[in-house]
Amino acid sequence: MTSMTMLEAINATLRDEMARDDRVLLLGQDVAQLGGVFRATEGLLERFGPDRVVDMPLAEAVIVGAAIGLAAAGLVPVAEMQFLGFSHQAFHQIGAQLARMRYRSQGRFPMPVVLRAPFGGGVRTPELHSEALEAQFVQSPGLQVVMPATAADAKGLLQTAIRQPDPVLFCEPLRGYRLVRDEVPDGDAPVPFGTARVAREGDDVTIIAWSAAVHVARRAADRLAEENISAAVLDLRTLVPLDEAGILDAVAATGRAVVVHEAPFTGGFGAEVVATISDGAFYSLEAPVARVCPPDTPYPAGKIEDYYLPSVERVVAAARATVKAP
């Protein structure tokens, strides 16, 4: 085990995967010479050379489209969207092309492509840099959507993402890049997709979250413990594939659930989680499932960002209300 920030874990994993498999190459804006605007790819140009760490022209669609072609040619591209907010410029290549290429070619062209994309709020970015767009991608069957919350999972999930044959959108919470630090297993430790992680045990209520919201949920659980409410925290880790059994077991165990995310309420992935619970754990529920997430408004400017994002206080209040419900 080594203590690492999330950023260090991502950088080290990219390095190790490139050393392990010479088909792996990185492409994106400012990834080579600069090492990425967050330094996630720092040192990799020097180590692997300009054929494997490539600064691309400023166009997201050509980055994803070229990654599709590279994969068809037998390579394993790991492309960076400088910010998830700018993946819209490539959406037609992601949803309509990357996700469907295996299907369209009836298996001839699997797409071992990873799109890494920082996202998420709380750091007072300029416009369009913070949006949590994950729900927009889960409607692209064929694409897997991966949302690590810890440094260890960033490594384990990225190893899996690069090694398995299908396309992955790998969302990295930029607020956690340097703030999140934990013990990362050395060597090979791939984390299978579709396995939620119990981030905290608890008996009274299950808080379900992913990415940076997991840390909000954990702090809320600490707070709830002071009120003698024992909250479990379930970190979904991957939205597609979804660990249905993990969700249903965790909710059945407490009979109460709160879902927390950074994307707007309507059509947020929380709605999918609630529907999954309703389908599979309805008769274990003691109370309606609560959602703590931003309102249906555009991602706001920095001065009002804290009103928008799910806060520890709001998660505590929702969990408390859920537990007190008849």
């Binding site: 309420f265 309507t266 309102p295 249906d296 408004t297 555009p298 706001p300 400017a301 001065k303 009002i304 009103y307 928008y308 206080e313 709001r314 209040a317």
Partner: peptide, 28 residues
Amino acid sequence: PGAPALFDHVSAQLSDRQRRQRADLLAQ
């Protein structure tokens, strides 16, 4: 700006759902 500014100029008219979200937020 305060929390209500989240909702300012989002649309010509807020939906019922947005109005409820706004009220919930202001009750925090």
